[in-house]
Design a protein around this nucleic acid. Sequence first.
DNA 1: GTGATGACTTGAG
DNA 2: CCTCAAGCCATCA
Length: 105
Amino acid sequence: MADFDAIYQVVSLIPSGRVTSYGAIAGYLGSKGGARLVGWAMNASHGQASIPAHRVVNRNGVLTGKNFFGGNRMQELLEAEGLTIQNDQIQNFHSHFWDPSIELL
DNA sequence: GTGATGACTTGAG
DNA sequence: CCTCAAGCCATCA
């Protein structure tokens, strides 16, 4: 569970209007070779309001877990952050991408 | 302990 | 960017 805590920290450090990918977090932590674990952590943090899981998407910039958020909740949150979502996918995703291993340093 | 599942990633075509 | 296939790790049955 300690791994999940590290993921929670990184996700909670994501600035507003920014998004990151599971692989970026997994790569930053490096300890676990699986981006799936990040997704698992998100699933565990599902009830944590302090965890902006809506800012975490897959490498394609697609809101993979929007279904888990309960409808368009995730998209609405991201749009509220100033992002543009279309077809469950973040537009200009690369510009909004936030890499912990680079931005967090 | 084994097998199956999952909010994923990467490489090749 | 799309599709197919293989890999990785933790959790659950």
